[in-house]
Design a protein around this nucleic acid. Sequence first.
DNA 1: GAAATAGTGTCTATAAGACAGTATAAA
DNA 2: TTTATACTGTCTTATAGACACTATTTC
Lengths: 265, 265
Amino acid sequence: MTTDAARTTGDEEEAEFLRAYDPRDFPPAAIVVDVVLLTIRAGRLSILLVERAGHPFKGAWALPGGFVEPDEDTDRAASRKLADETGLATFPGHLEQLRTYSSPDRDPRMRVVSVAYVGFMPDLPAPAAGSDAASARWWAFDDVVAEDGPALAFDHATIVADGVERARAKLEYTPLAASFTTEPFTLVDLRRVYEAVWGVELHVGNFRRKVLSTSGFVERLGVTSPPEGTRGRPAARYRRGDATILHPAMLRPGTLGADDADDDL
Amino acid sequence: MTTDAARTTGDEEEAEFLRAYDPRDFPPAAIVVDVVLLTIRAGRLSILLVERAGHPFKGAWALPGGFVEPDEDTDRAASRKLADETGLATFPGHLEQLRTYSSPDRDPRMRVVSVAYVGFMPDLPAPAAGSDAASARWWAFDDVVAEDGPALAFDHATIVADGVERARAKLEYTPLAASFTTEPFTLVDLRRVYEAVWGVELHVGNFRRKVLSTSGFVERLGVTSPPEGTRGRPAARYRRGDATILHPAMLRPGTLGADDADDDL
DNA sequence: GAAATAGTGTCTATAAGACAGTATAAA
DNA sequence: TTTATACTGTCTTATAGACACTATTTC
């Protein structure tokens, strides 16, 4: 179909069409990105929230994010916002698109479509200097969803819930748990990531067997000197392997039929 | 955090803020939806494409879709477009958000952000009448991605590939294969869905054992009279069960380590 | 040696792959 | 009775859950 000749003719016509085109013919909207940025702090799954300084939702807590500039795509906007927010030149973790939220009244100002992202990063000491993040802090996820938790702006409570569910699912079939750690890590570190994100206790021996028998999940670096002041047998260190998906997947315990809540219409 | 008193004061201030707000302060964009609509025709995974009547990409093939109206969210826009396109009052299948495509130059006219959807539907006879779909036709997926396949508009080749990969993944851990059939269906019908979407042959006996042993996947209706002109033993009919996810998942054969291509940055 | 932490071995249950067989219909 | 289609049984292998055990360090 669509011969080359037809396309060539079309290209000339198309240039003319584009010269005459008026962008104001279409219903406009603003595009923002919002990031569910997750880490493990003190053994708890934690999320970065920013207290809103201005209207709307002044004083409520919101996901880090902001408007997408005309010359960037949403991936780049999300990376840029995270660099601003964490004060780091490059974001030291994993970042992926979550989904898009487009209810016409989700922002009282105007039509604002939010392309949400979810990010995983290690628990780095906050750099603070030079960052946008005067009003930002980490919240334990359990505290955010608790009865007496913070008021969340816009539809960010929904986005947070969806982001955490995505994180839980991703740990099942990808090696991305390692994105929550700094390398080198121990298998105990890795297990604590699973336990914090899934909110369960995992069996030590079975977890080790599973991780080590899944090819490309981790690479052993050997036993190096443990941190000062630790007791007990020093743990072997690992780094990420080259797998992008886990085969077979890690199984999340307690997932017995009812679970998940996908984005049907 | 954020006492009720503070929120009340804020609400008055906020109303004032919104009265003074000028939406033109933000970089505008148009929002469209594009749908990767899949079905099984003659045993082949097939996708609905529309030949573009106007510029840009005049004569090329594109995903069905279009602009999101000011008073609707993208879910509703996608459903509406499918109803227009198929000529059916309500879309007879499964529809879910895929991901959002936002490269600044993906549309030569202006900044257009596409929220893509993926849909599964049975192979219904085309109603034609009253539909937008004069220029629409089903393409076998293999033919679309072939060397001599149709020219696809915008970044729709990428969206098609992502949509098909989503469909393949969804059949693994959900009972959505049934969305490709009309009820009642036979287990042979269901197996042919898997074979068409995954592009593999499945072992008959093992497939049956797996489907029937996964609780909530299908419900048996009994053996009803087979269609005219069929030979051989009549097959038992089933309808969907009440499960939303499969436990354990259906395993896609040949997924041995390398596969998947997720949306990292 | 006691305490603390890391790591191994093994039995059992479940589920998947392979493959050979039986059942029920039309011509 | 042949042919076509639907369905069942069973042996083997891979993986996960449960749980008891051994190893290496500090104090």
